[in-house]
Nucleic acid binder design. Structure first.
Lengths: 201, 201
DNA sequence: TTACATACATTCACGTATGTATGTAAATGG
DNA sequence: CCATTTACATACATACGTGAATGTATGTAA
């Protein structure tokens, strides 16, 4: 009953479905168990497959993690990017925090920190990390920054706001169940207050 | 030539010297190799002793890490706390960053994030983590906060500044050799600018 | 100097992770 | 419809980390 397209299950369908299952299981494992305990056994158990499937589609676990990171990147940050035309800094903060505060972002932080210490995986994962950082790193290729970067103070505040939100995200990641810090809203309100100062200037 | 007090090496001397050696090796391993690769084997190799020594003085590796964390806490943060009498917020930021920017702080972040995911160690380490957070968490027991917390805006900024510095510290920890981010100084300058606004109010 | 406690070193038994080699079922193409 | 490839599962070899058991050296008190 379930699969209406059950008959058209081509090889390439099986492949991409399996890969998506493994990617989802990887991210969830990173959130639940952290980087060190995200093993091939753990990921495959969550996906309901054997390690044979993983090693068929990916060269190694770090290779899978790298793909999972890029996938999360696209899904979380690029998909819903606000139009750069007439956005205020306050609106940008609201948008950015709505992304960074997602549970999936803990997976990103885990990878940032832990993969750096893992020589077996750093070669695979580092390129994906660099891609990730671009969106928050002001540069000419970043349309949002071009909007704010012209003004010196706005540019400095842009970078400050990013670091503040990363600090809050780190606090969530280090908290038992990823719960928000008590003073999270206070910090965000203060950040928005500073943003409005610049917006109304 | 080295040890002038070579003759007075009592048992308790040997113990505390060994414990200090193990603590130092643990912190350095956390900085160099991260939490997951800080094993009992690794720590003992750095300290130049066998695992027998470690397990003689500490119940387990997590227990040693917990002690190392508390030790770093005292050394890094409590030792040089500024006098709360007439400090400005800008001075406080300068002091706090001079602490958080130390390489040893990467060890703290590693523990914050990774030990949470390690059920074997969380019972040992969590109490030490709680101790750590107090100094940055505004509360009645925190003399620095009492100085700023009376003013609502100053209190909000205090918390914001902490999160911003933690974000910068995370960036350093995730960087190859713990190098500073390119825009670190820009963010700190902006933070100080906001601090002066409140100080001169 | 004898008797004991403390401080370590050595060894081994065990669990768990990785990578690979081999087997089998499901698609695809002639 | 059969040959071949693709997609997985199973089994095994290897490596590494932990913890406990046991052995040895060094300090300490009678």
């Amino acid at each position: 009953m379930a699969a209406t397209s059950a008959r058209a299950r081509t090889q390439s369908d099986r492949s991409s479905e399996m890969q998506q299952k493994l990617i989802a299981a990887t991210i969830q494992s990173l959130i639940d168990k952290g980087y060190a305990r995200t093993t091939a056994v753990e990921v495959c158990a969550r996906a309901g497959v054997t390690r044979g499937a993983l090693f068929h589609h990916f060269e190694s676990l770090p290779a899978l993690i790298a793909v999972a990171l890029s996938d999360t990147y696209d899904r979380l940050l690029l998909g819903s990017r606000p139009s750069e035309a007439d956005i205020t800094i306050e609106q940008w903060i609201t948008w950015a925090w709505s992304r960074v505060s997602q549970r999936q972002f803990k997976a990103v932080i885990e990878i940032w920190l832990a993969s750096r210490n893992d020589p077996e995986s750093t070669a695979d994962i580092q390129p994906a990390i660099e891609r990730y950082k671009e969106i928050f790193t002001p540069s000419e290729s970043n349309p949002l920054y071009k909007r704010f970067g012209s003004d010196k103070k706005a540019g400095a505040f842009y970078r400050l706001a990013v670091e503040t939100m990363l600090g809050l995200a780190l606090g969530r990641a280090a908290n038992p169940n990823g719960a928000a810090l008590d003073h999270e809203q206070i910090v965000l309100d203060q950040l928005c207050a500073y943003a409005r100062e610049i917006d109304t200037q």
